[in-house]
């Protein structure tokens, strides 16, 4: 299959990437765009390690084809904060709560939580648990991750009010 130019917005920048349109989007992001923060684990949309946002909606990039990014706004963990700038409240809260151990799932959880907080700025525990059940963590345990998301939500609300 000949390569094509696929244009989309990647973490706020317009990009034009030459790729095979039927390759997994996760591959394109990791290999052509160099975003190693997009982790690939299960390759079947189950574990959520490769979660990105597409037009603000969470998606498993391992189960999307590159062509499906065309014309869309793709957000990855790499766009959460820029080098030398403050961390995103979610990143700060994850660090403070030690909400990761091996780190394989962390980028996916951060992106999923970003989508959650965009829709539910004041989520209750049940909503957080429902959303986070989309992704799999096998070492940290969900308690610390839920606590981190609760704290990040509070930080983001406070930032908005300031």
């Amino acid at each position: 299959m000949p390569a094509e130019t696929i244009r989309f917005t990647l973490d706020g920048r317009e990009v034009a990437v030459t790729a095979e349109p039927a390759e997994p989007l996760a591959n394109l992001l990791r290999e052509a765009c160099g975003i190693q923060g997009v982790r690939v684990a299960c390759s079947r949309a189950v574990c959520g390690a490769c979660t990105i946002l597409v037009d603000g909606e969470p998606a498993a990039s391992c189960a999307m084809f590159a062509y499906q990014a065309e014309g869309r706004a793709v957000e990855t963990v790499a766009g959460l904060s820029q080098p030398g700038q403050a961390l995103h409240p979610l990143q700060e809260a994850f660090a403070r709560h030690a909400a990761f151990q091996c780190g394989t799932c962390t980028a996916g959880f951060l992106m999923l939580a970003k989508a959650l907080l965009a829709r539910h700025p004041e989520p209750d525990r049940a909503t957080i648990a429902e959303w986070l059940s989309s992704n799999i963590c096998r070492c940290t345990g969900y308690g610390a991750i839920i606590a981190a998301v609760e704290e990040a939500a509070a930080m983001m609300r406070a930032e908005k009010m300031a």
Partner: peptide
């Protein structure tokens, strides 16, 4: 290991 979208022969895309 199990073939995945990444490792399978690339399909032709038709829109």
């Amino acid at each position: 290991i199990a073939t995945t979208i990444a490792t399978a022969p690339r399909a032709e895309l038709r829109r």
